[in-house]
Simulated assay, not measured.
Amino acid sequence: MPLASTVRMAALALLWGSGFLWIKLALNHGLSPAQITIVRCALGTAVLALLARRAAQRLPNSRALWGHLAVAALFCNAIPFALFALGERSVDSGIAGVLNATTPLWSLLIGLAVGTDRGLSGTRLTGLLVGFAGTVLIFAPWHRSGLLSWGALSLLGAAASYSVAFAYMARHLTGRGAPLAVSAAQLLTATAWSTLGLPWAGPVDTDAVGILAVTALGVLATGVTFYLNYRLIADEGATSAATVGYLLPVVSVALGALILDEHIGRRVVAGMVVVLTGVALTRRQPERPARGAGPYTSAAPPRGATSPHTPAPAPAPAPAPATRPNAPEPNT
Rank of each mutant, 00 (worst) to 15 (best):
L153K: 02
F84C: 00
P80T: 11
V114S: 02
P330G: 07
L228Q: 13
A190Y: 09
A234D: 03
I233F: 10
T6L: 15
A327R: 15
L31P: 10
G202Q: 11
A82C: 05
V39C: 06
N331L: 06
K24H: 04
L31C: 08
T45M: 08
T189N: 00
L156V: 14
P286N: 07
T135C: 11
L15S: 02
P328F: 06
W200Q: 08
A299I: 03
G97E: 02
G115Y: 13
I38R: 00
G256M: 07
L173A: 07
P328L: 07
P286R: 06
L260F: 05
G271I: 08
L21Q: 01
W193M: 05
G111Y: 11
S18R: 08
T174I: 05
N77H: 07
A242H: 02
L232R: 07
T191A: 03
R303I: 03
P249V: 08
A64L: 15
R288W: 01
E262Y: 11
G119Q: 14
R283S: 01
S154W: 06
T116P: 04
W66S: 06
M272N: 01
G202N: 09
I138W: 11
F132E: 03
R291L: 06
L248N: 09
W193C: 02
L137S: 06
G294N: 10
S161Y: 06
A322S: 14
A327P: 08
T135H: 02
A184S: 15
A216K: 00
G115I: 12
T332M: 10
I233P: 04
C41M: 09
D235K: 10
Q186V: 11
P203W: 02
T102H: 07
L3Y: 11
A55L: 03
T277A: 15
